[in-house]
Amino acid sequence: MATKHSRAAARLMISPAVLLLLGWMIVPLAMTLYFSFLRYNLLMPGMEEWTGLTNYEFFVTDPAFFTALLNTLLLVGGVLLITVIGGTLLALLLDQPMFGQGIVRILVIAPFFVMPTVSALVWKNMFLNPVNGLFAHIAGFMGLPAYDFLGQAPLASIIGIVAWQWLPFATLILLTAFQSLDQEQLEAAEMDGASALSRFWYIMLPHLARAITVVILIQTIFLLSIFAEILVTTNGGPGVASTNLTYLIYVQSLLQFDVGGGSAGGVIAIILANIVAIFLMRMIGKNLEA
């Protein structure tokens, strides 16, 4: 029953948000795209010139690019694997009747609220440090040699830290999904003699499918952009052993002042993120209709 008048008012009310987001998207994107075709180094001001696809060529053929791409995939994949499987099991457990459920939930969710620089530094110094870290103390207590986690297995260590931060998120969302499960259906299956495993496999898991998809897609968006955790733990090293795409572009553009090369990397990162985004948008779009 919206009148013409109210429609005009509605358009007026939406426009600030739309215009701002439009500007936010288009202006920097256009600039990134433009820079990516220039030879543009901040150390050589005034020397900018059009170079076509040279920046892309250099970026893609740089061995660091392949490593960074692989690291990005391992980081995203590793964290997803841990958080989705761990989160499902943990949510299943937390959904059972127990004493002090609320408090356990509070304990489990806590890491999600810890700012990335804090969790990375705390893990780096208090736990993974080969001299004074808690793990080194425990190893010493058991008579084992200390292990230099961030030196020997930098990427795996970062995967561990990030998984610790995101496990609560997966758990919380999957727990919410578990709680909307039809209890009568489960009871009926139990009466018909379905084992706990088959109840999980045939009733719970299909019910969770949607929530799991949402967890995977949303985490992927955030995990592709992991930055602070790498910056404060390993600085991408040793070498480029723990450099992901985001960090590589940061190094190239802000530490090496290569605006053109960094921008070409940025465009590649945007293309990769868009591939993931298309799936996520479909999922959420479907939900909007329902």
Binding site: L29, S225, V259, G262, S263, L272
Partner: peptide
């Protein structure tokens, strides 16, 4: 949906500009 899509833009893609 379009507003949501702006969230998918990786920050590093617009870091330089």
């Amino acid at each position: 949906m379009w507003m949501l899509s702006t969230k998918m833009l990786p920050p590093v893609g617009v870091l330089v500009p």
